[in-house]
Nucleic acid binder design. Structure first.
Lengths: 332, 332
DNA sequence: CTGAAAGCGCTTACAG
DNA sequence: CTGAAAGCGCTTACAG
């Protein structure tokens, strides 16, 4: 910038004004500055600018996801990016892999980079450590999962009701032995979906059987193995409810392997590409991860615009999609 | 930092040394500083630090993708993130949506944020504009597609050979009318895959027929519609080669809709989740997007470490996976 | 409308 | 080992 000022023969103040698009600059001086900028290939240093600016904003937000490559996270990411883009804001995304330590490290690393705010799919079981940062003025919005030990804005899917609807569909057509395959039970959504499962069983006066309830399945491989042993039991379930997208894939593979896909009913939580193409079509509880991301971003930007209102929890409804696998009746 | 120095009753220099983990500080003073840091909830300002540091590094790189929510991009993203994570580097990712203007805007926006380097899946057809930035010291590595009008490092898949192998599989079992459905022809990979298609036809002494060659299909919907009209022609192809993951999905849907999935052969470029579960299984040319990301990141970090060697182009091999759809013979 | 000066939060030679 | 001072690239009152 100093060089630009020298070449254009104006003061630093004037260069700053021109570069920031102020209108109160003599057109001729502005022109000289623009020429110098072009000639020198000058690139504004936004970080230095933020350091001195009164608002101090970096026009960058942090987005902490479970895994940027998971379709659920990726869709949420894109929705946040689109909302941020409208305001010229960039997003620093990172994967936590359900690791609470990484959550804290990344928050700290992004706070050091002075992001304006955060959208977090939390991995840890206690977010109270964020209180200090929030007091310092950084807003946090939680997506997909509520924060724990911290009151904050959050946007979540209607996990419990969605799971209950799925399982109610199964009990509705006569199933009474419904296996549950769930993600890591430390994850709030996994707990909620399990609660929905229990709720639907209760409504149908079915006592849950721990033998066909499997938690803590975090990969498609683990889920496939678990489903295989479950389906090979003498008192195997007549229907499966899988509580997460990778778990659902494992369930599909296991059914396929045992050639049971047309005998055993199956409903998954979260939709899958090609779910309508496989046979039978996979019935699912679809959640709108794009909408979750969009609302979370909207909420964050409202906070950044000065909204001081009480914390809010938005619940995004899920939708049951019947495609065949969830409509297979129990053997009579 | 000033407050920390005051509370610990030491100079700013000392606080800086402690915060940066220098060893030449009296343990007692260091202890006082640490206490003050904890008490005040002090958070280091990494941007201000970079401004003054001799290396000036922000420990952040830019990653420009086609679309963070596309599985190909998302997998590449994750591989880059993992490589960056090892070095404590964060990644600022963004979606270009094949828009050359966005490419330039985002580069400029991230240069203003002083990222240390870039990994780019270019959207535009001319990257010569990056010469200025590179002279200023920012390294660029291209992934998935080579840069144009600029010599630079790049990591690409073996698109031409992969496509040729796929089509050769089809000609090998007797197909002579093979439809081509491709992505936007402005994209280098689409051109390469088409070249591979022509090459394989040539090897089988088949003259290409423009009537069954369709370019510029960029969404699953567009591809489905195109495939439908293609398959309903009187001289419809007996096999389909789809040159991109969304295009492949469109092809699958069209075949399904016409109940031709067991009659018309189909090979797709890029693998799909559940491709082995649908019936018939989808034969594909799989490309390793994770490996592309990993190598691109490795290359970028070597440059950041001072590698001044000549620019290199790494080619990642593709792999043909036979699953059934590509092995359907032509009607006799 | 324009410029000189102070200062954002930090690091780094330079003396001591 | 420690501190005072200069300065990274910028913005912003403050005079003129």
């Amino acid at each position: 910038m100093r060089e630009v000022a020298a070449l254009a023969d104006v003061s630093l103040s004037t260069v700053s004004r021109v570069v920031n698009g102020w209108s109160n600059v003599d057109p001729e001086l502005a022109e000289r500055v623009h020429r110098a900028v072009g000639l020198l290939g000058y690139q504004h240093n936004f970080a230095a600018s933020a350091l001195r600016r009164t608002d101090g904003k970096t026009a960058t937000i942090g987005l902490l996801l479970e895994d940027v490559s998971n379709p659920f996270s990726a869709t949420l990411h894109r929705a946040v990016e689109d909302a941020a883009e409208e305001r010229g804001v960039r997003v620093l995304a990172a994967s936590l892999d359900e690791n609470p330590e990484r959550e804290r490290e990344l928050v700290s690393s992004l706070v050091a980079r002075r992001v304006d705010g955060f959208i977090i799919v939390p991995a840890g079981e206690d977010q109270s450590y964020l209180l200090v940062e929030r007091r310092a003025g950084t807003p946090f919005v939680f997506a997909d999962r509520p924060p724990r030990h911290l009151a904050a804005d959050s946007v979540v899917a209607d996990n419990r009701a969605g799971a209950a609807a799925a399982v109610a569909q199964l009990t509705g057509i006569g199933h009474r032995r419904i296996g549950f395959l769930g993600d890591l039970f430390s994850i709030p959504t996994a707990q909620e979906r399990f609660a929905g499962y229990l709720e639907a069983l209760g409504s149908a006066a079915i006592a849950p059987d721990d033998a066909i309830i499997l938690h803590d399945l975090h990969t498609a491989e683990a889920a496939e193995a678990a489903a295989l042993t479950l389906l090979e039991r003498p008192d195997a379930p007549t229907a499966l409810f899988t509580g997460q997208n990778l778990v659902t894939i494992g369930g599909i593979r296991a059914l396929r392997q045992l050639a049971l896909e047309h005998q055993v009913a199956h409903v998954g939580f979260d939709d899958l590409v090609l779910a309508d193409i496989i046979q039978p079509g996979l019935s699912v509880v679809a959640q709108d991860s794009g909408e979750i991301g969009r609302l979370a971003a909207e909420c964050l930007f409202r906070r950044l615009d000065g909204d001081k209102g009480p914390h809010r929890t938005l619940v995004v409804p899920t939708r049951f999609i019947a495609r065949g696998s969830g409509e297979i009746p129990p053997p009579r």
